[in-house]
Design a protein around this nucleic acid. Sequence first.
DNA 1: AAGCTGACTATGG
DNA 2: GCCATAGCCAGCT
Length: 111
Amino acid sequence: MSDFFEQVYEVVKQVPPGRVTTYGAIAAYLGAPGAARMVGWAMNASGRHTGFVPAHRVVNRNGLLTGKHHFGAPDVMRELLENEGIEIVEDQIVGFEQKFWDPSRELEPLD
DNA sequence: AAGCTGACTATGG
DNA sequence: GCCATAGCCAGCT
C-alpha cells in the first residue's frame, strides 16, 4: 500500500462523527492539490486497510454523495451519515458548509 | 509497455 | 447555468 493511501486514511479516520470533508481538501492537505481523484481511489481501496475508514464522511466539494455506490448498496452511505446526525436530501448534505471539516484548518500542517 | 479509467475540481464558452 | 475540456496520478487491462 502506498504511503499516500495511508496518509489519506489517517486524515479520514480523524474526521469527527457528524462532520464531513472533501476529496480536494484531503488532497490539498497531503500536498497534492488537484489529486482529488486519488483520494477517491484511496477510498475505493480503503477496505484493504486494517481498521475502519469512515469513507462515508468524504464527499465531493458540493457535499454530494458521489461515492454512495461504492458501499455495496446505494443507501448505505446515506444511512451512515444520517445515523451521525447529518441530513441528506437528494444525495446531498444539508448545511454542508456548516458540517464541513477542513483538515488543513483542523489539523496541524504536514510540513 | 501503453492506454484507459476514475468516489474530483477548476475553468471557459 | 449547463456542457466541454483539461489537469491530476495511481491502478487496471
